[in-house]
Structures are given as C-alpha cells and as structure tokens.
Design a binder for these strands. Structure first.
Length: 113
DNA sequence: AAGTTGACGGTAC
DNA sequence: TGTACCGCCAACT
C-alpha cells in the first residue's frame, strides 16, 4: 500500500544510520540531513515507531545534547548504556563527546563538514 | 473536521 | 547558566 509518510521515514532512518559510531546528532539535524528541515518531531516519531536493533537510534539526542527520554526510564537507561558502549560520555542525562579536560566547549556535535 | 499530544527547537527571561 | 514559554509539523483521538 502506498505510504507517502513511509518515504520520509525511510529518509530519516537512512540519516540515522549515516551517523558514524561514537558520534551523535540532534533530531532536527537528522531531519535536515534527511531532506526534511523543521521535521525534528517527525524524526522522533519515526524512531519511536522503529524497532530495528541495528539502527543506531541511540545516537540521536535533543538539540541540547540531552537524552530525549525521561531520566530513569528504560529507554533513557538503554540509550545511555549504548552510548557509553560506543565511547560517548554521558553525564546526568547529558551526552558529551570524549574531550580532553579543558576543551569542554570543543565541538559537541563534531566538526562541521 | 477539530482538538490534543509529542523520543523537538529556539528565543526570552 | 538554567528555566520558561512559544512555535512548527505530523499523527492520533
């Protein structure tokens, strides 16, 4: 059956899969990469509907670098664990790239291409 | 058909 | 620096 929304979802999923290991991106960032600027919420909905264990959904965070799930929730805990397993530092629900002490403000989202 | 909700984002205070 | 409020888009009721 035709599902136009599934097309957008496919693009978003592709953008999420395009995130390299150890890296993170925001919902708006992923949506923009998928060709859907301003559809950050759509990206979140797609991830919520997705159920692919191979999908690096845990690399997708909020614009503030915080985990979208409520702290203490199962999803929050799972994402936190997965991020740490990839070398991503997670402190107090906040995701921080592995940076040397002193360079705190050094590119949270990595170098812009 | 209309109203509400949401794994969001950005600006204002 | 952290919190609060509003705005945007699509799906669900």
């Amino acid at each position: 059956m035709s599902a136009p929304c599934a097309d957008a979802a496919s693009l978003i999923l592709a953008a999420v899969r395009a995130i390299p290991r150890g890296q993170v991106a925001g919902y708006g960032e992923v949506a923009r990469r998928a060709g859907l600027p301003g559809r950050a919420r759509l990206a979140a909905r797609v991830l919520a509907a997705n159920a692919d264990p191979e999908l690096p959904w845990h690399r997708v965070l909020r614009a503030d670098g915080r985990i979208a799930f409520p702290e203490g929730s199962a999803g929050w805990r799972e994402q936190c664990r997965r991020l740490r397993a990839e070398g991503v530092l997670v402190a107090d629900g906040r995701v921080r790239r592995a940076t040397a002490p002193g360079d705190l403000d050094a590119a949270v989202w990595g170098p812009a291409p």
